[in-house]
Simulated assay, not measured.
Amino acid sequence: MATTTTTAVTTTPTPDGAGTPAIRRRQRLLFLRNAKAMTGLVIIGVFAVLAVIGPWIAPMDPDALSSDVLSPPSAAHWLGTDHLGKDILSQIMVGTRGVMIVGFTAGILATVIGVLVGVTAGYIGGAGDEALSALSNVFLVIPQLPLIIVIAGQLPSAGGLTVAAVIAVTGWAWGARVLRAQTLSLRRRDFVEAARANGERTWRILTAEILPNLTAIIAAGFVGTVTFAVISQITLAFIGVTSVSDWNWGTILFWAQQNQALARGAWWWFAPAGLCIALLGMGLTLVNFGIDEFVNPRLRSTGLHARELRRRGIRPRIGFTPVVHEAEEGRR
């Protein structure tokens, strides 16, 4: 009967950075070497650049009328026009800025609040931990999207920053809970106890000893919040809750739906905006997958040796952890 042999055993570095310098160096480069993460970063980078320069390079004013009413893509209008002759490509270029500003503003604010509350609660313990945990539990059960709809409906002039602030205020609790749990597991580690015994200040222990070990988790929470913020803003614009005069991808879909673009066969009116939403969502998801492979030791080991596994005809599966000799690691 045929048997399968495992190559050898290697040591997986612990969260506090144990392991040889070569292994630590390889792990720092793993995220950038990950094909999923790099593809996602490229997609997000393209949209970020478009958000900065889009209004300047747009072929025309997105509100400018023309005689080419409901015209399909052509040399004059690369993505066609709407029912008033407005250029769809210009609307998408100008609207990208609003989508990116809301998404990343909400992600940054929610991440900062979650880090402050979660790490502080996990490290100080006692009554402070109980109070901050209770605060997190309160915000954890607040329905985000209905609250955003109510606030945006009561503030007709509410812009993207208002929506981002509401998403951040209501969206930090889950990340704070995860960070608190991880901080509880780190605060009694030997390297933290050694820093405390050496008389290090609390802020120094938090910033230099604990936060570096939470980087991947913080990044994953940030990406998740950005994704939710982008979807929320587009949803609010599509249902007409926010101002329909401020261009973003949801506004384009709102006007297309209001004027029955699908029934008229004007696919160019809604398809480009939908494709942009799908691409940005895919980019954020791929980055999240890359972070997950960096955090999870099993996925990290598979990612490090993906090419070698493919060369040997081995298919990784759930529960599979490929390992190699440290001597073989050194030859690479």
Rank of each mutant, 00 (worst) to 15 (best):
P59A: 06
G290N: 02
L30M: 14
V42D: 00
W247N: 06
T10L: 13
T162P: 07
V69P: 08
A237I: 03
A181H: 10
V52P: 00
F320E: 07
T183H: 05
T207R: 09
G17R: 00
A278Y: 06
D292N: 10
R204A: 14
E200L: 10
A306F: 14
R312Y: 07
L147N: 13
L84C: 13
I92S: 06
T120L: 08
T321S: 08
Q144P: 13
L116D: 03
T3K: 13
V52F: 10
I218D: 05
I142C: 04
G125F: 06
M1L: 15
T170V: 10
D246W: 13
P156V: 02
G313I: 00
L145W: 03
L309S: 06
R177N: 05
S243T: 02
T162I: 12
S136C: 07
T207V: 08
G125Y: 04
A131F: 13
A195Y: 03
A195E: 10
V119P: 03
G54E: 08
F289P: 01
P72T: 12
P212Q: 04
P146L: 04
V163C: 00
T251A: 11
L179N: 04
V192S: 03
W203F: 10
G125I: 01
L84Y: 15
T202D: 14
G303E: 00
P73E: 10
T162Q: 07
T225M: 10
V119W: 01
A278N: 05
P73Q: 10
A158V: 02
P73L: 15
A220R: 04
V287S: 05
K86G: 12
L116G: 04
L135W: 08
G98R: 13
R317C: 02
R264N: 15
G40Y: 00
G159R: 05
A37Y: 01
A76M: 11
I44N: 00
